[in-house]
Amino acid sequence: MKINENASIKIPTKLIVPIITFILGAVFFYIGLDYGFWDSNALKPTKGFFPTIMSVALMIFSILGIVNGAKAEKVEFKLANWFVPAGLLAVIGASYIIGLVPAIIIFEFVWLRLYEKVSWKATIITLAIVVFIVVCCFQIWLGIDFPVGLIGNLIFG
């Protein structure tokens, strides 16, 4: 099955975004009130004081955003842009089995060579740069232990 990466969908996000921020404000407001607003004995604000005020402000401005966004044009989202988070999720999934570093190397190879059809020379140079960044900079120099995955655990215990 061939995927048409130029496929796109138009969504009214200029309206949806302020609706989401309004809901976010409402949730923070509701929970914030539960935390308490003002300690009348000690005459000081409680932990809900600041977020409650800010959530009210967010709700007010979100209503303005909703009014502005109601008549705005829909925004076009192309399928190709979503390959980026999809690729990331694939690497995360693969890292549980083969480990993070091999998963990144395979991802780079698949993306460059199979998806973008970049030349072998450019693929190898790019892979070398990525390996240098991940292994030399992060793993060796910064001492980050990346997950070795199920297979790595079986081999190295």
């Binding site: 990144i104 780079e108 990525v130 980050i144």
Partner: peptide, 25 residues
């Protein structure tokens, strides 16, 4: 098109190294 996968990988390892877990990612 060559820069894109490189930045994806840098984003991934950079965010992982802050929390030492996929929570950061």
């Amino acid at each position: 098109k060559i820069i894109i996968p490189v930045i994806i990988s840098v984003c991934l390892v950079g965010s992982y190294s802050d929390t030492y877990s996929f929570y950061g990612v």
